[in-house]
């Protein structure tokens, strides 16, 4: 049933900004930095979402996902590869046996401006192709028009089609305008059956920010207190450097704590982040920063 949205916590932007500044001023050094970088790498949903994606391109990033940097020992693989439904089968084949998940965007991504029927078919197609994870978008138009029931029902319907596949619900926070709206949309998604809530499609600016992620983590926290169920979080878009990724992890560490500090409950939707993390890891090992040319760009 749709949750009561009238009595949700509200957010004070100045207060949230202040808290974020505190996370960002944490100084992450030596071993804790290494630990954080490896953790961040293991949480990446390596993403390619382009109209021009081809079999070749998808195979290349799948190889990268499995072998981020073979000269570095003891580094994890990424968590998943995220592609359009039409590329799912290629990714499944390329990643076979690697343990890396295949995530597919669906539901008329990125705008979501289509009929429920089309969205369900889109989802079904991705699931049938073998996607383990579905990244759906909510209908922001309906949400901003106040049709919360519509948004809720849509997520419920998509979840049903997902079957065993995990459902990540993209709120596209860049279009929701206020932190209070972000909380409201998080609540709808969580109660409608989301396994993960996700900030952005990456196609709209601003994409993920620490502010909206903080509000979403707070929603996850409150839900856990109420029900004991853990929901995952995926900020996506704009997280391009290790420094930013570590700041997100500090926030996760201090808001939700150890149970969420793994790829089952936290993901970064990113592509260029991986090479920046690798560069830092190599630096930690050799003491020098290598040029970008030493890191594969797939």
């Amino acid at each position: 049933m749709i949750p009561n949205l009238d009595n949700l916590p509200v957010y004070d932007t100045a207060g949230v900004n202040e808290r974020i500044a505190r996370f960002c001023s944490r100084s992450i050094k030596s071993n804790s930095k290494l630990e954080g970088l490896k953790l961040a790498l293991s949480m990446v949903d390596l993403t390619t979402l382009e109209g021009k994606d081809t079999t070749g391109k998808v195979q290349q990033i799948c190889y990268k996902a499995m072998h981020p940097h073979d000269t570095l020992k003891n580094i994890p693989k990424v968590a998943a590869v995220c592609v359009y439904p039409a590329q799912v089968a290629i990714a499944i084949k390329a990643l076979k046996g690697s343990g890396i998940q295949v995530a597919s965007v669906a539901t008329a991504f990125p705008s979501g401006q289509s009929s429920l029927e089309v969205k369900l078919l889109d989802t079904k197609f991705a699931v049938d192709q073998g996607a383990n994870e579905i990244d759906m978008v909510i209908s922001r138009g309906q949400f901003l028009a106040g049709n919360y029931q519509y948004v809720f029902d849509e997520i419920v319907a998509v979840k049903k089609v997902c079957g065993q596949a995990h459902l990540k619900v993209i709120l596209e926070t860049g279009e929701l305008d206020t932190l209070d709206n972000v909380r409201k949309a998080s609540e709808l998604a969580i109660y409608a059956g989301a396994d993960f809530i996700k900030t952005s499609t990456g196609k709209i600016q601003p994409a993920a920010t620490m502010q909206v992620t903080y509000v979403m983590l707070d929603a996850i926290k409150d839900y856990y207190i109420k029900t004991g169920k853990m929901i995952g979080m995926k900020p996506a878009g704009g997280i391009s450097t290790s420094k930013i990724a570590l700041q997100y992890l500090v926030m996760l560490n201090e808001v939700l704590g150890e149970k969420w500090m793994n790829k089952n409950y936290f993901r970064f939707g990113a592509s260029s982040l991986v090479n920046d993390i690798l560069m830092q890891l190599v630096k930690a090992e050799t003491g020098n920063y290598q040029s970008g040319n030493y890191f594969s760009k797939d």
């Binding site: 944490r26 071993n31 926290k221 704590g257």
Partner: peptide, 12 residues
């Protein structure tokens, strides 16, 4: 319930 697990190294 939400105990942090990632201990930050000293940064004096």
């Amino acid at each position: 319930m939400f105990k942090a697990s990632w201990a930050y190294d000293e940064a004096p």
